[in-house]
Computed example of a mutant assay.
Amino acid sequence: MKPPRTLIREAVRDRLAAQLPSVDPRITASRISIHRTTPLFAGKLPAILIYTRDERIEDQPNADPGLRYRKLELSVEIVASGEAAAEEADVLAQAVEAILDQDETLGRLVDGTRLTRTEVDQDGEGDTPVLAVRLSFEVSYWTRPAEAPGGVLPLQVLVSWAPEIGIPHEPDYQPLLDPNGVPPS
């Protein structure tokens, strides 16, 4: 079973890969990565990197090893180069924000996704200026340990219909995937 942060990054990538080519035809799935360590080449820009940063677990509920309410910092970084880098990055950043606003639960994978800040970095050294715009999103979601074959306890991402969320509604939650990574029937 994939870890929750990987599932979230993949869900964001899938949404962006499906809709961004209509904004900029150069942005294909091959230019969207779910890893910050992906090497970037000038001929392959603009590109988008999706990665996770900090994650905190809320004090309430504190049912170890039960339900955990998590708040994840997810970054979507747009890297562009050349004389029009700022304009290209701004257009793509606006599109990313709109796409993630359209489905803030990522298909009921998470409770919510909200933009918390935008940062702009520019490297003016060298022949070609490079600009990066980082959109930071707070992603809220629930997990609980799940018994899996072999005694391993992976985390299950839980989905439920809002507003029936939280400890009183734990029986209403359903695992997104079973311990073998298959959607429940």
Rank of each mutant, 00 (worst) to 15 (best):
M1E: 02
K2S: 15
R5M: 04
L7R: 02
I8Q: 00
R9T: 07
R9C: 09
R9M: 07
R9H: 02
R9W: 05
E10F: 05
E10M: 10
Q19F: 09
V23M: 04
V23E: 07
I27H: 14
S30F: 03
H35I: 08
T37P: 06
T37I: 03
T37H: 03
T38P: 04
T38F: 13
L40K: 08
L40V: 11
F41K: 13
F41V: 08
A42Q: 12
L45S: 09
P46Y: 01
P46L: 06
A47R: 14
L49N: 08
L49H: 05
T52G: 15
R53I: 05
R53V: 06
E55D: 05
R56E: 06
R56G: 03
I57E: 09
I57Q: 13
E58D: 15
E58R: 08
D59L: 13
Q60Y: 14
P61Q: 06
A63Q: 13
A63Y: 08
P65Q: 01
L74N: 07
I78M: 02
I78S: 12
V79Y: 07
A80L: 02
S81R: 07
G82E: 06
G82F: 07
E83R: 11
E83Q: 04
A84E: 10
A85R: 01
E87I: 06
E87R: 06
E88T: 02
A89I: 04
A89H: 05
D90S: 15
V91P: 07
L92C: 15
L92P: 14
Q94N: 13
A95D: 03
E97I: 08
A98F: 04
A98I: 10
I99N: 09
L100G: 14
D101C: 05
D101G: 02
D101I: 01
D101R: 05
D101A: 13
D103L: 08
E104L: 07
T105G: 13
G107P: 12
R108S: 12
L109V: 04
G112V: 11
R114M: 08
L115F: 02
L115G: 02
L115H: 05
T116N: 14
R117C: 14
T118G: 12
E119Q: 14
D121G: 04
Q122L: 01
D127G: 15
P129V: 07
V130C: 10
V130M: 11
L131W: 01
A132W: 11
A132F: 06
V133C: 02
R134G: 06
R134V: 12
S136V: 15
S136I: 13
F137S: 00
E138T: 11
Y141M: 01
Y141D: 00
W142Y: 03
W142C: 01
T143F: 05
R144H: 12
P145K: 03
E147C: 09
E147A: 15
A148P: 01
P149Q: 10
P149H: 15
G151Q: 04
V152T: 04
L153S: 06
L153V: 15
Q156F: 06
S160H: 03
S160R: 00
W161R: 15
E164W: 15
E164A: 08
I165S: 11
G166H: 12
G166T: 01
I167V: 12
I167S: 15
P171T: 00
D172V: 02
D172S: 12
D172C: 07
Y173S: 00
Q174D: 04
Q174T: 05
P175D: 06
L176T: 01
L176C: 03
L177S: 00
P179L: 09
P179A: 15
N180L: 09
V182S: 05
P183N: 13
P184S: 11
